[in-house]
Design a protein around this nucleic acid. Structure first.
Length: 459
DNA sequence: CTAGGGTTAG
């Protein structure tokens, strides 16, 4: 039926556009209206919904669609399962991911290259690079030719798992074998190198991107801008920002959030506020990251009331708090001197199922120290399973400030023994403090142990 | 309809 086929395509376009706008309710309304008018949904219609439910609602809701589509006499296909697998992977549900993979095979749906790509991505995301690599080998043993997506996921995954050197090597190998990297590949690698603090290497790849004749896209710009801010080249970052604007790139909140967060971080609040105004003027609706960025801006200005007001607005818009939101609020409460508020918010956060957030914990530890409750902080530290270099640094730093150098020294040692990297300035503060307060032999011993730890852990 | 960029702590 020619006309019917055309209508179904229109229906799908319509549903996809509502789904993209996260308006699944409206998408469902359109589906029902369509059916009433005799426009029959097809596998693409249901796949779009499955994908949207995976992304914006939850897996069970997506799984219900699977039931509905089979009731309608439409069999799920490989795309349906790829979406479900991606959904499980996004939520870090490894068993669910693998079960779905099996279920697909049992139903006689052969996994395609994308299924394997998604599986590989999933393993990387869960911090299992060896398993991901096995999937990569699997792909090679099939008849398929791995496509650029496969390489992109591989390069991205290697970088995110701390193997940026291997990622770079893979990139070079591919080039030698005649593979022409596309913009995405460059972007992934630049971002990975940037996150691994290998700014020089990132800049080099960026140069190559310019020379390759590829047009950098909005991703490239935002990635590079972030790279500039990270290496404290603020003016260069801002130049990139205006160049991006000047060239008429579609302006979403990504670039604005990058700029605002960078200025907040270095305390240039007027500029941050200025960019916030610009971002609001674009008239785009905010997503969770935009809200988080702005809430952080208010928090760091000490405007806690405004921050909580924005939080209300965010929740009214249907966004739930994430780990970042909670952490930003806890940090804000600490910095504005409301340490009780911070402590109770940490408890609230954990009660909400955000179990092990180290960053929020570190904020509270630092807040307690700064508010003069050093011993309370130490007790919390000692009874906690989670701790990292930041936790140690806060405590050591504040113990020095309280002139409790021998205490600080002990903690510094256990930090080094655990292989955590602690700033040299903090180490120096302990050594100087010990010497100045007459513990020079202890200082010498500590110095030796620091050298040993540096050798042992290469820190 | 299925990968890549932005938000938190010294």
């Amino acid at each position: 039926m020619r006309f019917g086929g055309f209508s179904t395509r229109l229906l799908n376009i319509c549903i996809a556009s509502y789904c993209r706008a996260r308006n699944i309710e409206q998408a469902e309304v359109i589906l029902i209206d369509g059916i009433r008018l005799g426009v029959l949904p097809d596998v693409v219609t249901y796949n779009t919904l499955v994908d949207a439910y995976c992304k914006f609602v939850d897996l069970d809701a997506a799984y219900l669609i699977l039931g509905r589509m089979m009731e309608a006499g439409i069999s799920p296909d490989v795309v349906t399962y790829n979406s479900l697998i991606a959904g499980a992977s996004r939520r870090c549900l490894l068993l669910r991911t693998l079960d779905l993979f099996d279920e697909m095979c049992v139903r006689g749906i052969a996994p395609d290259l994308w299924s394997y790509n998604t599986l590989m991505h999933s393993f990387f995301k869960l911090g299992k690079p060896e398993e991901a690599n096995r999937v990569f080998q699997d792909i090679w043993s099939k008849d398929w030719l791995p496509c650029s997506d496969t390489y992109n996921i591989m390069i991205n995954g290697l970088c995110k798992n701390g193997y940026s050197e291997n990622a770079l090597r893979l990139f070079r190998t591919l080039q030698r074998r005649g593979f022409t990297p596309e913009v995405v590949t460059y972007n992934v690698l630049i971002n990975g190198l940037c996150k691994a603090e290998r700014l020089g290497a990132a800049r080099k790849i960026l140069q190559e991107l310019w020379l390759s004749g590829c047009q950098p896209n909005a991703y490239s710009y935002t990635t590079f801008m972030k790279c500039c801010f990270k290496s404290r080249k603020f003016n260069r970052g801002l130049e990139i920002f205006s160049e991006m604007k000047g060239k008429g790139y579609t302006f979403d909140s990504f670039a604005y959030c990058t700029v605002i967060a960078a200025f907040v971080k270095i305390g240039r609040m007027e500029e941050a506020c200025d960019f916030m105004g610009q971002m609001m003027d674009t008239g785009h609706s905010f997503d969770i990251v935009s809200y988080n960025t702005l809430i952080n801006l208010y928090c760091r200005q000490g405007k806690m009331e405004a921050a909580f007001q924005l939080l209300d607005e965010m929740e009214k818009e249907g966004w739930g708090c994430d780990v970042y939101t909670h952490t930003i609020l806890i940090n804000g409460l600490c910095k504005s001197g409301n340490i009780e508020g911070a402590l109770s918010h940490l408890q609230y956060m954990r009660a909400m199922g955000f179990g092990s957030d180290l960053v929020a914990f570190n904020c509270v530890i630092d807040g307690l120290c700064k508010a003069g409750f050093l011993d309370h902080a130490i007790t919390m530290f000692e009874t906690s399973e989670l701790k990292d270099a930041y936790t140690y640094t806060s405590l050591v730093h504040n113990l020095c400030k309280a002139r409790r150098f021998r205490n600080a020294s002990k903690l510094l040692l256990s930090c080094l023994r655990n292989g955590f990297k602690i700033p040299r300035s903090t180490q120096r503060a302990v050594l100087d403090g010990l010497r100045e307060s007459g513990f020079s032999s202890e200082a010498r011993k500590l110095q030796t142990k620091i050298y040993m730890a540096r050798l042992l852990h290469s820190i």
